[in-house]
Design a protein around this nucleic acid. Structure first.
Lengths: 250, 250
DNA sequence: ACGGACATACCAAGAACAGGGGATGGCAGC
DNA sequence: GCTGCCATCCCCTGTTCTTGGTATGTCCGT
């Protein structure tokens, strides 16, 4: 019966052609799973503003409005935790996954006041392409249907897959490519070195390093170091392993 | 019963402490699911050199050896397809997911000759951190156990999660905590804003923003913006989702 | 009531960087 | 041979950042 559940939903999704159909299907399946709300977000990394992504949910209006406030501050702990886990997670685990600031806790509290108690969020990421989350939540007085979380995981994954397929047929993905030297300079910059230090390390002139970084910024269409490092990390051009562990080694 | 299956495996993984234990658990579960082989790979993101990752499998020795040849050429179509899907996929779907070159087809053929018929691969990515796959395969004469693919998805996800946890223990010892204001300044900095711009956005003085960033750097014991942003990203104090979208929006 | 953490604001010096110029040589592809 | 891309180096101007201070007021916990 449980296996059927997932398969039924999969079958249902095959016929889905539009956002609203997917939304309806998700609303239905989340009820059947014992959840009160769902939210699916998909962000496509296409650079152009044609494809801003997709946001489907049946949260209370009140919460949707309040959420924008927190969003401006980049303060959704759930979204942050999504960068840390392969598998879906119950919100109770947030503290073990990431540090929670006072504002984060406040956000969760306000959520409760607006009718969102606790939830289970399924994170998925495709480097350079897309990032998505699918959340199933329950009302404040209730508890998560523990025995259905595995199903929620599957259902969320299926829904995200479907949402991705609904999106624009993958056009020309323009993941910027940097030259070796540019990447090298970028890595050292990410490690906290100044251009002058990097120059010594690489045995080239300071101006040359600055030039490499300049061109790298152009390719990524950003205008400062921080953004360049973040973008390169996000795209997988460099990894935390390149940067962080290095701190101990030195 | 199916739900139990996933839960049983999850329970089994809780006690796993080493690579070999995980490998044994996967071997057992893949048999029970009706597969003949499994393979789990986890690469910790390092753009350049081979980073310490994890590779567990019970493929025939012959195939393991041959695979290295293809791998050197970076020619695994399954791996490429992993960058395109949120959800696991049967290898029959490869053609619909990515263009297959002659070399790709040859690789699949050689696989069959070595005892790997077809398979189901679960891909997972964490931006900047890791990239993992978990594959369940059957012998050339057999077909995939279709009704168990949803379970394979769950099992693969659990296994990858476990493998990630086995890695470098992200000790929660000294995770610096920033004040909300400091974090807010940091987020806008990561979004590429200068201190002056951030000051306007937050409605405070430029010097105050600089002060917040100054204290944040002190807590993280770094001396420049890039390192601060990287460290905060790595710790999960800020998330990619909080940052990236704003590059286009502005 | 006091210390401690926090947010706010300001000053000043020097280093570092962003954005704009050029210029040279090497190397691959047509 | 020409073109384009890459790596290297150089200059300049103005802005931004880093680092060192000081100072005020609020709020919280004890």
């Amino acid at each position: 019966m449980y296996a059927n559940f997932a398969e039924e939903f999969a079958t249902e999704l095959i016929n889905v052609q539009s956002d609203t159909e997917l939304s309806d299907a998700l609303a239905g399946v989340s009820r059947r799973l014992g959840f009160d709300h769902f939210a699916l977000s998909l962000e496509l990394r296409s650079g152009s503003r044609e494809a801003p992504g997709l946001l489907l949910h049946d949260y209370p209006d009140e919460w949707a409005k309040v959420y924008v406030t927190f969003d401006l501050a980049g303060q959704d702990p759930v979204r942050r935790a999504c960068d840390k886990s392969f598998i879906g997670f119950a919100w109770e685990m947030l503290e073990q996954m990431i540090p929670l600031t006072r504002g984060d806790r406040q956000m969760l509290t306000v959520g409760k006041e607006c009718g969102i108690g606790t939830g289970y969020t399924v994170p998925r990421h495709l480097p350079g392409l897309a990032r998505g989350t699918c959340t199933f939540a329950v009302s404040p007085d209730k508890d998560l249907p523990r025995c259905r979380l595995a199903l929620a995981e599957i259902v969320g994954t299926l829904a995200l897959s479907c949402a991705l397929a609904l999106g624009p047929s993958r056009g020309a993905e323009t993941v910027p490519v940097l030259s070796d030297r540019q990447r090298e300079c970028l890595v050292w910059t990410a490690r906290g070195k100044t251009a002058a230090e990097t120059a010594i390390i690489l045995g080239i002139g300071t101006e040359t390093v600055i030039q490499h970084l300049k061109m790298a910024r152009e390719r990524y269409q950003v205008h400062c170091k921080q953004s360049l490092v973040v973008a390169a990390l996000f795209d997988g051009l460099i990894g935390f392993a390149d940067i962080i562990r290095w701190r101990d080694a030195d």
